[in-house]
Design a protein around this nucleic acid. Structure first.
Length: 964
RNA sequence: GGUCACGUGGCGGAAUUGGUAUACGCGCACGUCUCAGAAGCGUGUCCCGUAAGGGUUGGGAGUUCGAAUCUCCCCGUGACCACCA
């Protein structure tokens, strides 16, 4: 046996695989296809990151398994090569970004090949290749034609360091996602893509795909769909009554449209708030109108708001600011009451209608504002707590009380601990016929606690509760009035025995009480008592709401909306995509500005609009792209009128090229279309796409949007690009911090491959922890997977041919087949490898293994460690590549045990175990167990209460412990 | 602040329709091989206890014959969102 030498084996097989083209994907329509995708890397100067290896290996394993299962597999690779780092490097050194990109890609290519990934290198794509970005530009033109791309002057997020406009998705905590510089607002004409037109489908169609739940949730939250209503409030111009009933300052009838998700609280709307950017505010300040009494005050507030940065405006714990629009009042359409109107920056211009009705009793933000400005608070929803009810039983309504009873001298309160049900409550009860609630409360106190002299401090609000009352076996709909009592002294009667059996009275400090109470409504009542008037933002029973009093709030939303002439609408948090970048290293936006004809798209036959070479890559302080300074390139002819015209100098963000690259992989060389229909039909959708969580609201959402657009044009066969999406955890440096060049804790895979081999590295990256979880790098761990490979290598000495493996060996192997097969599907790579290690440890103990058995073992390991298994396969087992061999199937009869280990417990404690036939009867096990000597000593002289038998698993003997 | 995850040896982690906690790997200790070291191989390795036995899955309470797993409270960590009406 030769020693295991990965430095020799690995390059040898990499070369052979390349020349035999075994990873080339063909449009073989007779075979089932599998399209596995990883996010194509940005070829940075730092070279391949160990994180790339983890996600690439995972999909490599899945693809290899699919190939062995008989699928035609497409597992492609390419370069997402537009972007800031190359440009910044170019600014520093004067090197062409394209030159740097080519060099970096070459490094990546060499490193990826050294790891033995089964990519189809013949389909490599590069987003910066004009042959590629021709089609990126082409798709943009289709969007322009269809009204999805438009230009808009708007306040954009501007990074003063990178000198670049940012999409909302690229602003994190008010800072630039890349460099952490606080983002400023800047007015600029920008190209926009109307992703919001697809908001509803992007949300709804998540139901049709197999994405990890956390990914779906994050996308849904980002899209932020919410159902609500738009309601008009009419206005009363106090300063200038002549305007009433005529036109308002915006030239429209004197009405203000607000958006709310809680129309049910409209009777509690005590003022309106407009966002500072609201058109109505702008117009009210216009010199042409004279409707405000405090124009100057409002103007100075707006100026103040404008000065604030995004961070200041949204800072945590920031106090609410605002100003009243004096001279105008609004009429609440439900109560017909006159209410004031404010301008405040806590209302966002771009969401809903940019105006709200404020309900301080049931909204935290409104409450804060109302408190500061001394505005009216009107409670219209009484809390309702829904517990599980028994649907087969009627709901019995009754008035009742909850009493908080304070000790006569100490800061302690009465809690009741119920014995039959698992409740811990405040005192509750109800009046008898003819009694008042207060009398009922006093009676309950006497009956349940014995105390004779409660003094009423206060009767407060009401809460409601629907629940199943187990002791009386009915559903209750209780209207609970809250009473505060203090006892005057400790004088008490002995309480009746039957009450004693029901519950125990305990005196608790406020702290203890907080932890003691179990029912939600009791906890609410207690918190409110502790913290004073609390916000209630949940659903409940309406009060002070005219005809809707007594109704459940969530059930009357539509009715109330209609009653005030409102309209049900759906809104989204998602905003349109800012598509312009004032940068050099991106796809030029293929548009020409003509003085006569305006914006003219570049004719498709003139695509691609190529990036010209430039001397200076520095962005201009004015926020224009470096392209603007190349006069020769900028000046051109208008395609329509042939007159003088200028090229658009903005470029696309680097999310553009990645929005459709998976389509290009299916037909990467096509010069006529972005991808041919035949190939698209065969390969799409992507069957399995793995990538990082950081792309969930950016790349993943953007590419779904582009795909849906292409689908609507009939250019792609499916409405969703990716059938399945999973996410890997990041690899962190030792100590759980991010790997970064500046800290110097980046792991270079080249060194690892050299010392341990690519196979050991691949195995380690998959073994180190759960795939979806973040995990710290530990170079020491690779020793373990290297030893594992050496063990597999040494097993070759045990192979005997011809020979038949024992049944025990077969059982071991078939269990491994089952576990590994299932674990790969669920991305449980760490447990799959652990199973393989256990299997190899088992095989080491036996004398001889058949060639077939060894082959099976190698096949299971092949996706993880492709080189060493290929070598051993060629050496010991068979001709041809192991990666084209058939994936083993397990024999169910070899999985099922005929014997089972039965655990024997006494009072739940494990005492011994024994083996018995799997199908042993309960009766047999029951008797057998009592005969075991290890058990006899535990049960001797004690009476057996019962015996619990779980066939095939365990027996638990419950005995009477010696008490006293 | 909100939402959702998660918390298991010296370390990474395994075990989830509730049924032998600590699989697998790293590390460590001892042994073996060696002139010696490395690598390899073998044995051991949750805690207390000589043993019998007892204890242990962030802390506390509960449900259960039986809880790492289910429920409640508290503590801690992480991710996402963050004035979205």
């Amino acid at each position: 046996m030769k020693p295991y030498d990965p430095a020799k084996i690995e390059p040898k097989w990499q070369k052979k695989w390349h020349s035999s083209k075994i990873y080339r994907a063909k449009e073989n329509t007779k075979k089932k296809k599998f399209y596995g995708l990883i996010e194509f890397p940005y070829p940075s100067g730092e070279g391949l990151h160990v994180g790339h290896i983890r996600s690439n290996t995972a999909m490599d394993i899945i693809s290899r398994k699919r190939r062995m299962e008989g699928f035609e597999v497409l597992y492609p690779i390419g370069w997402d090569a537009f972007g800031l780092p190359a440009e910044n490097y170019a600014i520093k050194t004067g090197t062409q970004p394209s030159t740097i990109t080519k060099k970096n890609a070459a490094t990546f290519r060499r490193q990826l090949k050294a790891l033995g990934f089964g990519f189809d290198w013949s389909r490599e794509v590069d987003t910066t290749d004009p042959k590629y970005y021709k089609w990126t530009q082409w798709i943009f033109l289709q969007m322009l034609k269809n009204g999805l791309a438009y230009k808009k002057k708007m306040a954009i997020n501007w990074c003063p360091k990178d000198l670049i406009g940012l999409a909302n998705e690229e602003v994190v905590d008010g800072k630039c996602e890349r460099c952490g510089t606080p983002v400023e607002k800047k007015e600029k004409e920008q190209w926009m893509l109307a992703i919001t037109k697809y908001a509803d489908r992007l949300d709804k169609d998540l139901d049709t795909v197999d994405f990890e739940e956390r990914i779906k949730t994050q996308q849904r939250n980002w899209i932020g769909k919410s159902e609500g209503a738009e309601i008009d409030f009419s206005l009363d111009f106090k300063k200038n009554p002549a305007d009433n009933g005529r036109l308002g300052p915006d030239g429209k009838p004197t009405r203000l449209k607000i958006f709310t998700t809680r129309p049910d609280t409209i009777y509690g709307a005590t003022y309106l708030v407009l966002s500072p950017e609201h058109l109505w505010v702008t117009l009210a300040l216009d010199d042409a109108h004279d409707v405000l009494e405090n124009k100057d005050e409002v103007k100075s507030y707006l100026a103040e708001v404008k000065k604030k940065s995004e961070i200041e405006r949204t800072a945590e714990g920031k106090e609410k600011t605002g100003v009243e629009l004096k001279g105008i009042k609004a009429i609440n359409p439900a109560t017909k009451e006159e209410i004031p109107i404010y301008v405040a920056d806590y209302v966002l211009a771009h969401y809903g209608t940019g105006a709200i009705m404020a309900v301080p009793a049931h909204d935290e933000r409104d409450a804060e504002f109302a408190k500061k400005f001394g505005l009216a608070v009107k409670r219209v929803v009484e809390p309702l707590f829904l517990d599980t009810v028994d649907k087969n039983k009627p709901l019995i309504e009754r008035d009742a009380i909850i009493a908080i009873i304070k000790h006569w001298s100490e800061d302690r309160y009465i809690g009741l601990k119920w014995k039959k049900v698992n409740w811990q409550t405040l005192l509750t009860g109800g009046p008898d016929e003819g009694q008042s609630l207060e009398q009922g409360a006093i009676k309950e106190i006497l009956e349940e606690t014995g105390y004779k002299h409660p003094k009423l401090i206060k009767q407060s609000y009401t809460v409601h509760s629907k629940f199943f009352h187990a002791p009386k076996n009915v559903n209750r709909f209780a209207h609970l009035n809250i009473f505060y009592f203090q006892l005057e002294n400790g004088e008490k009667l002995e309480i009746a025995d039957e009450e004693k059996e029901n519950h125990e009275v305990v005196w608790l400090t406020p702290d203890e009480m907080g932890k003691f109470l179990t029912p939600e409504c009791h906890r609410y009542v207690w918190n409110e008592y502790q913290n004073g008037e609390a916000q209630y933002t949940g659903l409940g029973i309406l009060v002070n709401s005219g005809p809707f009093d007594g109704r459940q709030s969530d059930e009357v939303t539509k009715e109330i909306t209609q009653s005030v002439g409102g309209k049900s609408v759906t809104t989204y948090k998602l905003r349109d995509w800012i598509f312009s970048r004032q940068r050099y290293w991106g796809e030029p936006i293929p548009v020409i500005h003509c003085e006569k004809c305006g914006i003219v798209p570049v004719p498709e036959k003139d695509l691609p609009v190529k990036l010209p070479p430039v001397k200076n890559y520095q962005p201009t302080q004015t926020g224009e792209s470096p392209l603007a300074s190349i006069k020769k390139w900028v000046s051109t002819k208008c395609p329509q009128c042939k007159g003088p015209a200028k090229r658009e100098t903005d470029t696309m963000p680097n999310w553009a090229g990645s929005s459709w690259y998976y389509l290009r992989y299916t037909d990467p060389k096509n010069a006529k279309v972005f991808a041919g229909q035949k190939n698209l039909k065969y390969w799409t959708p992507v069957d399995w796409y793995n990538g990082g969580m950081e792309h969930t609201t950016l790349h993943l959402l953007y590419s779904r949007f582009w795909h849906k657009f292409l689908f609507d044009l009939g250019l792609v066969p499916t409405s969703e690009p990716y059938q399945k999406r999973t996410s890997h955890g990041l690899i962190l440096a030792e100590g759980g911090v991010k790997m970064s060049k500046s800290v110097g804790n980046v792991i270079n895979p080249d060194g690892i491959v050299k010392t341990f081999g690519a196979d050991a590295l691949r195995l380690y990256e998959m073994f180190m922890g759960p795939f979806e979880q973040h995990i710290s790098w530990d170079t020491n761990g690779i020793v373990g997977t290297r030893r594992f490979i050496e063990k597999v290598w040494r097993l070759q000495e045990k192979v005997v041919h011809p020979f038949t493996s024992s049944e025990a060996t077969a059982r071991t192997l078939h269990k491994a087949i089952k576990k590994v097969t299932e674990d790969i599907e669920s991305m449980g790579f760490n447990t799959a490898i652990s199973t393989l290690m256990i299997t190899v440890n088992e095989l080491e103990k036996i004398e001889a293994i058949s060639r077939e058995s060894y082959g099976t073992l190698l096949k299971l390991i092949a996706p993880f460690a492709p080189h060493v298994t290929e070598e051993l396969w060629a050496l010991i087992v068979n001709k041809g590549s192991i990666h084209q061999a058939t994936w083993p199937e397990f024999d169910p009869s070899l999985i099922i045990n005929t014997e089972a280990t039965i655990v024997v417990q006494v009072n739940g404690k494990t005492r011994t175990s024994f083996t018995a036939a799997l199908n042993s009867s309960k009766e047999f096990l029951e008797t057998k167990v009592q005969e075991l000597p290890e058990i006899k000593k535990w049960i001797e002289g004690k009476s057996i209460v019962k015996i619990i038998v779980v066939p095939g698993r365990l027996v638990n003997i419950v005995i009477n412990e010696l008490t006293v």
